[in-house]
Amino acid sequence: MRIALLSYSTKPRGGVVHTLALAEALAAAGEDVTVWTLGRGGDDGFFRTVDPAVRLRVVPFPDGPPDETVGARILRSIATLRDAFDPTPYDIVHAQDCISANAAGRCVRTVHHLDHFTTPELAACHERAIVEPYAHICVSRSVADELSDGWGLKPAVIPNGVAYERFATTDPAARAAWRSRLGPYVLTVGGIEPRKGSLDLLEAYASLRTGHPGVRLVIAGGETLFDYRDYRARWETRAAELGVRPMVLGPVADEELPALVAAADAFAFPSLKEGFGLAAMEALAAGVPLVVRDLPVLREVFGPAARFGDSPQTLAAELGGALDSYDPARAEAGRELAARHTWTEAAAHHLAFYRALTP
């Protein structure tokens, strides 16, 4: 089967990580897979090495003018990918986000999570990418139910895989190097942005430091299409008001990320919107205590393997509990949960779904 997987970026965002891992698992199953994406900022490849069994098509996407708005950038992204992509060689065209779905034409769409945008061009992109694809996949039942309730759709549910061994068996020297550099720390991955609940985590960290003054908050990741400068400015102002100084690492090299995760004392995942929580599942694979936002989707995915908080105060309390008392039963439940989510199984379910769509 000839399969095209489309994404919007080469950067290490969750949907891009998903796209590459799925592509490699499909190729390992013997399928002919090509990943199409936009090469932003001069990128001519992805943030990590990709199995050579997967064909890559990185479409150049030069920076726009300094005054380019988010809406204009979205429209230019769609047009650039659409002009380069030819769907005719493929049996399945599968888009992983609203930009690539708008560019692809007739396609399968994975809806990782639903957003509510105020930028008109982005809101229209989001809506078209739900209503126009002819088939849909979600990575959790909670998001599938949102599509059913809001649009009358009946998506298939195929959970993410996780690179279990990569996070469960990290190099002790690499972990020690992060500990030496950072000391005790709570880690979050995903950058500083509204959807990630960054302001709530900042408030929680300030409360946490009352009983744990030596623990640092470390923030990794953060590449995104959107302009969150105003939110980042509010975050920095609030950090100064609270008298806290989190360590903001920005994007971390792919080969360094597993040890950074494994060396953490706890992993915080206070997102306001999620479809699955791949970064949090990676933390469980590493045996790191996990505290997440109390959302239905995260209850569905993580169950007894995580601690849950619904406010800065309860997030702080649960992080404090995770730091004060290691829970071996919860840690083992987390490892077992992560180990069950394999990309091999996810690829098999995708192939069954694709075959049901093709003559």
Rank of each mutant, 00 (worst) to 15 (best):
61 F>N: 00
207 S>R: 14
336 E>C: 00
293 R>L: 01
209 R>S: 02
193 E>M: 12
341 H>V: 01
322 A>P: 07
93 V>E: 12
232 R>N: 00
70 V>A: 13
47 F>V: 09
159 P>R: 05
335 R>A: 10
179 R>N: 07
268 A>C: 11
320 G>H: 03
45 G>W: 04
290 L>A: 07
15 G>F: 09
351 L>I: 13
68 E>W: 14
109 R>V: 13
254 D>R: 12
47 F>R: 05
321 G>Q: 12
326 Y>S: 12
303 G>A: 15
198 S>L: 00
107 C>F: 12
241 E>W: 05
160 N>T: 05
333 A>D: 07
74 I>G: 01
189 V>L: 13
246 P>S: 02
205 Y>K: 02
208 L>F: 04
352 A>L: 02
348 A>G: 14
138 C>S: 13
141 R>E: 15
293 R>S: 15
50 V>T: 08
11 K>Y: 09
186 V>D: 03
185 Y>P: 01
275 G>R: 03
21 A>S: 14
315 L>C: 10
132 E>C: 10
57 R>L: 03
3 I>V: 15
234 R>M: 06
337 L>I: 03
44 D>S: 15
96 Q>Y: 12
60 P>C: 05
237 T>I: 06
200 D>V: 02
62 P>F: 07
270 P>F: 15
217 L>P: 08
265 D>A: 11
247 M>A: 12
341 H>S: 02
256 E>N: 13
316 A>C: 11
322 A>T: 06
19 T>K: 10
159 P>T: 08
30 G>K: 12
93 V>K: 09
63 D>Y: 03
176 A>R: 04
196 K>E: 00
294 D>R: 15
237 T>Q: 14
172 P>H: 05
62 P>S: 11
242 L>S: 06
159 P>L: 06
286 A>G: 04
223 E>Q: 11
17 V>S: 06
48 R>T: 08
204 A>I: 01
334 G>K: 08
325 S>Q: 09
4 A>W: 09
219 I>Q: 06
264 A>D: 03
288 V>M: 04
30 G>Q: 10
229 R>I: 00
100 S>V: 10
251 P>A: 11
250 G>T: 11
33 V>R: 03
195 R>W: 00
340 R>N: 07
73 R>G: 01
113 H>D: 10
47 F>M: 06
8 Y>S: 15
272 L>S: 03
125 C>G: 10
201 L>G: 08
69 T>Y: 14
224 T>N: 04
13 R>I: 07
205 Y>I: 07
47 F>H: 14
350 H>M: 06
193 E>S: 13
71 G>H: 13
100 S>Q: 12
184 P>H: 06
64 G>N: 08
350 H>V: 06
180 S>C: 05
333 A>V: 09
25 A>F: 00
65 P>I: 03
348 A>E: 15
136 H>D: 09
249 L>H: 10
23 A>C: 12
244 V>I: 09
357 L>P: 03
260 L>Y: 04
272 L>H: 15
146 E>H: 07
176 A>M: 04
313 Q>H: 10
103 A>T: 11
128 R>E: 11
251 P>M: 07
195 R>E: 02
178 W>G: 05
